[in-house]
C-alpha cells in the first residue's frame, strides 16, 4: 500500500482513470515550486565572526534544532551555500574577505545581518569596525539584538523564507541592480545549431 505523508493512502489514485485528473492533481507554476524548494533547503555558509556566531551555533544545536527548516547543513565552502549569516562585528580587515566569500557564493544567494554590530556597527563606532555590513554586501534581513537569541535568528530565517516564497527579494534586486551584478541579458543563450523551426510555447 502506497502511503504519502499528508495525503495518506494513494494506492487507489489511478482507479478512476482520466476522470480522476480533475480532483487528484494540483496545478501550479514551476516558479512557485522552485521558490518553495529554495526556501526549504537554504544552506547557510559558516561565517561566524564574534559573539553572534556562538548563538548561531546554538541555534543549530540540540535545543533549537535548525534542522527543522532544512538548514542544519552549515557549508564550509561558500560555493555550496545559499545564505550568508553575517554573525558578528565586521572589522575593516575582515570586510574584503567577507566580500570575497559573498562573491564566491552561487546565485541565488541571500544575506542575513545578525546582530547590531553587523547591522550598524552597534556599540563599536570606532576606527576598526565597519558601520553596517550593508556597505559591503546587500543585506536582505536584519536581526536585532546583541547578540540575537536563537529565537530571534529563527524569526529572521522564517522571514527570509517568506520573502523567498513571495519572490520579493529577487524582484527587488532586479529593480535596484543589487546582488552580484549578473544579468541574464549579459549571457545570451547560444544560437541553436540546427535551423529547425520550433513552435512558440
Amino acid at each position: 500500500m502506497a502511503r504519502v505523508p499528508i495525503l495518506g493512502d494513494i494506492s487507489g489514485v489511478l482507479d478512476e482513470g482520466l476522470e480522476g485528473l480533475e480532483h487528484n492533481f494540483v496545478t501550479a507554476r514551476i516558479e512557485d515550486l522552485v521558490k518553495w524548494s529554495r526556501a526549504r533547503s537554504c544552506w547557510p555558509a559558516t561565517f561566524g565572526l564574534a559573539c553572534c556566531a556562538i548563538e548561531m551555533m546554538a541555534t543549530g544545536a540540540a535545543h533549537y534544532d535548525l534542522a527543522r527548516y532544512g538548514m542544519e547543513v552549515f557549508r564550509a565552502s561558500p560555493r555550496q551555500a545559499d545564505l550568508m549569516i553575517v554573525a558578528g562585528r565586521v572589522s575593516q580587515k575582515m570586510a574584503p574577505v567577507l566580500r570575497q566569500i559573498y562573491d564566491q557564493m552561487m546565485e541565488p544567494k541571500w544575506v542575513i545581518s545578525m546582530g547590531v554590530c553587523a547591522s550598524s556597527g552597534g556599540m563599536f563606532n570606532n576606527y576598526a569596525i565597519v558601520q553596517g555590513v550593508d556597505q559591503v554586501v546587500p543585506v536582505d534581513i536584519y536581526a536585532p539584538g546583541c547578540p540575537p537569541g536563537p529565537e530571534t535568528l529563527m524569526h529572521a530565517i522564517l522571514t527570509l523564507h517568506d520573502k523567498i516564497l513571495t519572490g520579493e527579494l529577487t524582484s527587488r534586486r532586479e529593480q535596484t541592480g543589487a546582488g552580484a551584478g549578473f544579468d541574464l541579458a549579459d549571457f545570451p543563450a547560444p544560437e541553436p545549431p540546427a535551423p529547425e523551426p520550433e513552435e512558440a510555447p
Binding site: A50, R89, S91, K93, F124, Y127, I129
Partner: peptide
C-alpha cells in the same frame, strides 16, 4: 590575527 579587531581599548 586582527580579523576581529574591534578597537575595544579605544572604545
Amino acid at each position: 590575527i586582527g580579523y576581529l579587531h574591534t578597537g575595544m581599548e579605544k572604545t
